[in-house]
Design a protein around this nucleic acid. Structure first.
Lengths: 238, 238
DNA sequence: ATTATGACATGACAAAAGTCATCTTTTTGG
DNA sequence: CCAAAAAGATGACTTTTGTCATGTCATAAT
């Protein structure tokens, strides 16, 4: 479980195109490159804990990381699953607060770390970059507003259907019509995404399966009938 | 129900101290002042609708406004209640998206409107202001993360207790130990804040009342036992 | 190969919360 | 000032969901 360092030049990073860093000049990318540390993490390793102070920004280069909160009784709610190209921990960093959530590796990950000072330097010297970051944050907020309204008034069945569709969109396998959800999620993790008990997810998933809406392929789920699932999620009327 | 214009110089605004505009130079404030329109709204009037495009920023000068989403079945979830000094509609503006929520006046309000271009001009010419805005947005995101985790795993009873405490903190009357929640909220609105049915809120509130945790004063609620309520909200263990 | 461990699955049951109907009280508009 | 409408309250009932117990299966460690 030892952390292993690696190094990839930011200018050559295959995920640059999916990242907010896309659009920075080669000079800016090189400055970040000089001040970053890249580490490989194994499944189950922790990146940061709720309640601690951020010292810099994480940038995903490979794998998947869940960002989650635990309540007093130990129940987990997964706020977000970070994939390559995503920033991690930027909210607490820019808000100058403690982390409000924890982050743990779901699938073996490669993550670069840029110290706070260097990130802020690039941010403040490049207004266009700042604007892109602000835009992305506001977009994220819109998604959170949507999720709160869903949690407030949708049934677990509707939320599970909506979560499966969201996962298909965000983490769908390239090709194959993108119907395979390309994350090896446990039922427990899926329950933490939906905000329900593990047993409930298991029951509903097998209902969806027997209704022909999804199929299971190894540890992964394939969405067979996105439109019918959208109807279950109450996203389509009719 | 006609909208009535009024005008107050930004430099003299009594809510400037509570606003993100606090810290701007008199010149910047005057520029905003020159390009703003201030309107008085009556209770029940709409400020903007979900799905429309923002054309500028609203800045609260008086009253209360609810920001909410309606789901397909017409159930409402209140994301935020804006009070004097607050910005309104900045998320969609900065995210360059449609409004993800609607805004309606809860208590007669005075609201100033600054067009997008002028707001962006001040924002881009003043990096310190930009930084404050980003910090505030990120703080808001942290609150939303907390709320999502609450909605996912807390009971309605716990959420109602937590909402009452939050309302007391954010909208508590000055003086009086700030125990009176100074918004005339209907049971229906309170249900939309908690994310539950109106009947459930009514029942739980009268339970809280008979347990001596709260009392009703006219249309308003007084929190009598914040610590016991915090225990109900599962914020304190013991 | 065998055991231990964790993930998945299912049943039984209880608790929480939503829905619908009805009634009372308060507020508002004419 | 009165009628109509809206808000608040309460009971009866149903549905949804969580919890606990138990069992199976796959995987990993020894």
């Amino acid at each position: 479980m030892a952390k292993v360092e690696f190094n990839i030049a930011c200018t050559l990073c295959e995920h640059l195109k999916d990242s907010l860093f896309n659009g920075l000049s080669p000079e800016e990318l090189n400055r970040i490159n000089l001040h970053k540390t890249c580490i490989s993490y194994k499944k189950g390793q922790n990146i940061f804990y709720e309640g601690t102070r951020p010292t810099g920004l994480y940038c995903m280069n490979g794998g998947k990381v869940k960002v989650y909160k635990n309540n007093v009784q130990g129940k987990e709610y997964i706020i977000y699953i970070a994939k390559p190209g995503d920033f991690l921990g930027y909210r607490a960093l820019l808000g100058e607060e403690y982390y409000a959530a924890s982050a743990t590796v779901l699938e073996d990950a490669k993550i670069c770390f840029i110290t706070k000072d260097h990130f802020f330097e690039v941010l403040q010297k490049n207004p266009a970059f700042m604007k892109r970051v602000v835009k992305a944050i506001c977009h994220e907020m819109g998604i959170m507003e949507e999720k709160m309204a869903e949690l407030a008034h949708k049934s677990v069945r509707e939320r599970l259907a909506a979560s499966l569709l969201m996962l298909k969109e965000s983490y769908g396998m390239e090709g194959e019509g993108s119907t395979l959800i390309d994350i090896a999620l446990s039922r427990e993790d899926l329950a933490s995404i939906v905000g329900t008990a593990t047993e409930t997810v298991i029951r509903l998933l097998s209902e969806f399966k027997s209704e022909g809406l999804v199929s299971f392929e190894g540890k992964k789920i394939r969405v067979l009938e996105p439109r019918k699932l959208a109807k279950q999620a109450d996203l389509i009327i009719g």
